[in-house]
Computed example of a mutant assay.
Amino acid sequence: MKIFIDVGHPAHVHLYRNFIKILSKKDVEFLVTARNKDVTISLLQAYNIPFVPVGNPSKGQIEVFKEWILRDIKVYKIAREFDPTYLMGLLNPTIAHSAFLLRKSSIIFNDSEPEAIKFPIADWITTPFVNTVIVPESIRHSYGAKEVRVSSYKELAYLHPNHFKPDFKILSNAGISRGEEFVLIRFVAWKAYHDISEGGFSLEQKLKLVKELSQYATVFVSSELPLPKELEKYRLPIPPQHIHHFLYYASLLVCDSQTMTTEAGVLGTPAIRSNSFVGSRDMGNFIELEREYGLIYNIREPEKVIKKALELIGQPNLKKIWEKKRKKLLNDKIDLTSFMVWFVENYPDSLKEFKENPEIQYRFR
């Protein structure tokens, strides 16, 4: 078996890294192409995943379409030479187009709902060409006969206890002592195509947020954009592959990030998410994590975020309360990596088996 995977974002590396590790030991051959987005390349190198670079992210939201076209051509040429059995990615148009042109099967993961995005272009140019779409059951959009709906999140491909063991020693680089409470704040760049006319904290709001919270707890800041000089002293002093250990032990996450909010939820760390997606058109996983499990808070108004953050910081036994909530979630959800290994190893028979009996997924808790 030969599998081709294209990754364009750090979250994609995490989604597939354990999948690649497990199947590589079974003599499955992989070829990974990668876009130099944020810390994507650093993560691939840290996890010893060989890759072929296929370009850099565009400098603006409009230029992204030119980048897509150029990357489409590069990926197709590389895939044609590799001649894979299956092509995989996360809502990845280059994978879908290459598979379609090569008459190969594509298996795509997607956890972003087109209804939540003002211009869901990636869905429009990807889904029609895809064979199978694996989606969390929490999303409200239906992909019809193409979808495989699983009780999981993409973050459980790498943060499920079967694959992730928190290591407190890693935090020593940040000077954290056991029992010390600290808050992690995460800001994203808002430059992706799906971020057109969307946004999170303004610079003024970032400065106020850090200033207020630092009076009550040790604060660390992680940012996709260069930090303003006023926040440089709060920079998170660990390599990107260790971020989840840091997040696990954090007392609280405050962010405008989508992925890191879900990561905090599945790790049992209280999280407050604030951006323009919050509201009636929000994505199903965030609604579920808040309403069903009480693990996160979705607050659209930045001025209300500080009030909620201070309320949580002052709550005794906060992490113990959240650990009980996390156990409930883990009892309901499956290990996505183990499911994908079974699904791809046995595809397309596994697709037929799943359609006839979706409960088979619960073998992979």
Score class of each variant (00 low, 15 high):
76 Y>G: 06
318 L>T: 02
192 A>R: 13
5 I>C: 07
217 A>T: 10
256 D>K: 07
156 L>P: 02
77 K>A: 11
269 T>C: 02
132 T>I: 15
277 F>L: 06
291 R>I: 02
339 F>P: 05
126 T>M: 10
136 P>F: 00
202 S>V: 10
10 P>V: 04
129 F>H: 12
72 D>Q: 14
114 P>D: 13
165 K>D: 09
295 L>D: 01
21 K>Q: 14
98 S>N: 12
152 S>G: 02
37 K>M: 12
340 M>N: 06
281 R>Y: 12
329 L>I: 02
88 M>C: 13
236 L>Y: 07
243 I>P: 00
272 I>R: 04
18 N>L: 01
171 L>T: 06
163 H>M: 05
323 E>D: 14
242 H>I: 03
234 Y>M: 10
197 S>E: 15
269 T>W: 01
208 K>D: 14
84 P>K: 08
115 E>D: 13
287 I>A: 01
229 K>V: 11
106 S>T: 08
207 L>R: 13
11 A>W: 00
122 A>G: 04
318 L>I: 08
150 V>L: 02
329 L>T: 00
90 L>S: 14
64 V>G: 06
97 H>S: 12
58 S>A: 15
78 I>N: 05
30 F>P: 09
137 E>K: 01
206 K>W: 11
269 T>E: 01
70 L>D: 14
318 L>Q: 05
222 S>Y: 09
210 V>S: 05
44 L>R: 11
169 K>D: 15
230 E>W: 11
229 K>L: 13
268 G>W: 02
229 K>M: 11
98 S>W: 12
170 I>K: 15
119 F>V: 15
65 F>D: 02
34 A>C: 06
49 I>F: 09
301 E>L: 13
6 D>G: 09
203 L>H: 10
252 L>R: 07
356 E>P: 03
310 L>Y: 02
186 R>D: 08
301 E>V: 14
313 I>F: 07
41 I>P: 09
15 L>Q: 08
111 D>K: 01
361 Q>N: 04
352 K>G: 03
7 V>D: 08
315 Q>K: 15
58 S>L: 07
163 H>G: 03
40 T>E: 07
11 A>F: 01
194 H>V: 13
260 M>F: 15
342 W>P: 11
45 Q>N: 14
354 F>W: 13
365 R>L: 10
19 F>Q: 01
269 T>L: 01
246 F>D: 04
200 G>E: 05
208 K>G: 04
81 E>R: 15
80 R>C: 09
142 S>I: 05
22 I>G: 00
190 W>K: 00
313 I>Q: 05
4 F>S: 03
126 T>S: 14
122 A>P: 10
111 D>N: 06
277 F>N: 04
226 P>H: 08
148 V>M: 05
330 L>Q: 01
213 L>K: 03
243 I>Y: 14
322 W>T: 02
117 I>Y: 04
268 G>A: 04
92 N>Y: 00
153 Y>H: 06
244 H>L: 06
291 R>C: 00
197 S>P: 00
242 H>E: 15
236 L>D: 06
339 F>I: 03
145 A>N: 13
365 R>I: 08
95 I>D: 03
129 F>R: 09
80 R>I: 07
47 Y>M: 09
250 A>Y: 08
18 N>R: 05
64 V>H: 10
334 I>V: 12
211 K>Q: 13
317 N>E: 09
302 P>S: 07
125 I>D: 06
